[in-house]
């Protein structure tokens, strides 16, 4: 084998037209997402154990009930039918509660889907989520024709944020203020810090549910937990809202009457601030557009 030719060189292609088209690697097509990114969500050991307990409880309960109903029928038709009625009513209630829970969770998932679509810049998905959302909201329903016509994600987002979302935010803040005043009052007069905490927790949960309902969500128990989780742990959102909350708290508490309490009511002021913040962060968590 001989040595390869020494030295680099340029070989012009004379048979080619003078101006060659630019290279095209078909890159745009090559990078189109095939499946929407869907993270594998893992079941933790605890989750599996809990599911097992539920299956055992409900399953064995159902078998037991079936056996018992069959036995009652051997005793007599009346007892049989009565037992069946009781069993069906009982399990029906459980099932309907489960269904409500599921719907609550699904409605929160829908918020996630909408946000993901906005974050991805996927106009079509974001539009259809926005339309579905607007369909279920009295405030947003008139916006539907306009939503159908927008040409870009930014436009869609601006339309939602300027219209219904701004209104919702005001209402959520009003709910927050009401809860804040109550929390302040309760902590100011309550005899023990333990009771404060209890009242605060109860009022907080109610506030989050109120805000969710405002946004067209029907959070059940699981949904509320999911929302609370987001509300309490979304550090970034909390930091962003702190400034706004500061101003709101000052406006709310710079009241002659309340200032009388100032000394012993420091805890009350804190509780009020927390409520205001909770309302804002909960509203943030329920919005169908991602935080900026």
């Amino acid at each position: 084998m001989s040595d390869p030719p020494k030295g680099p060189r340029v070989i012009l292609e004379d048979d080619q037209p003078q101006i060659a088209p630019r290279l095209d690697f078909g890159w745009d097509q090559a990078v189109v997402p095939v499946v929407p990114p869907n993270p594998p969500s893992r079941w933790s050991g605890f989750g599996r154990a809990a599911a097992g307990v539920v299956v055992l409880g409900l399953g064995l309960g159902a078998l037991e009930a079936a056996n018992f109903t069959a036995a009652q029928f051997t005793r007599g038709a009346v007892q049989g039918w009565l037992t069946l009625g009781v069993v069906v009513a009982g399990f029906g209630l459980i099932a309907s509660a489960g269904w409500a829970e599921l719907r609550g969770l699904l409605s929160i998932r829908a918020v996630d889907r909408a946000r993901a679509a906005f974050a991805r810049g996927d106009l079509e998905a974001a539009r259809s989520e926005a339309l579905r959302w607007a369909g279920g909201m009295a405030e947003a329903a008139p916006l539907q024709p306009a939503l159908r016509q927008v040409g870009s994600i930014a436009e869609l987002r601006a339309l939602l944020e300027a219209g219904p979302l701004a209104g919702l935010e005001t209402q959520a803040n009003a709910l927050g203020r009401a809860a804040a005043v109550q929390a302040f009052a309760v902590t100011a007069i309550s005899p023990s810090p333990g009771l404060d905490a209890l009242v605060f927790a109860w009022r907080g949960v109610r506030l989050v549910r109120q805000v969710a309902a405002l946004h067209g969500l029907r959070p059940g128990l699981a949904g509320t937990v999911a929302l609370l989780r987001r509300t309490v742990f979304d550090a970034a959102a909390v930091a962003a809202t702190d400034i706004a909350v500061d101003a709101a708290a000052r406006a709310l508490l710079s009241n002659k009457l309340l200032e009388q309490f100032a000394g012993e009511a420091a805890a009350g002021a804190l509780a009020a601030r927390r409520m205001l913040r909770l309302a804002r962060v909960a509203a943030e968590a329920c919005r169908i557009t991602p935080p900026r």
Binding site: K6, P8, V10, L12, E13, Q18, I19, P21
Partner: peptide
């Protein structure tokens, strides 16, 4: 093979070993 910036012509380039 690439398209040269200066005159838009297609060229093959042997960069040496």
């Amino acid at each position: 093979r690439g398209v040269l910036l200066r005159d838009g012509r297609s060229a093959r380039i042997y960069p040496g070993e």
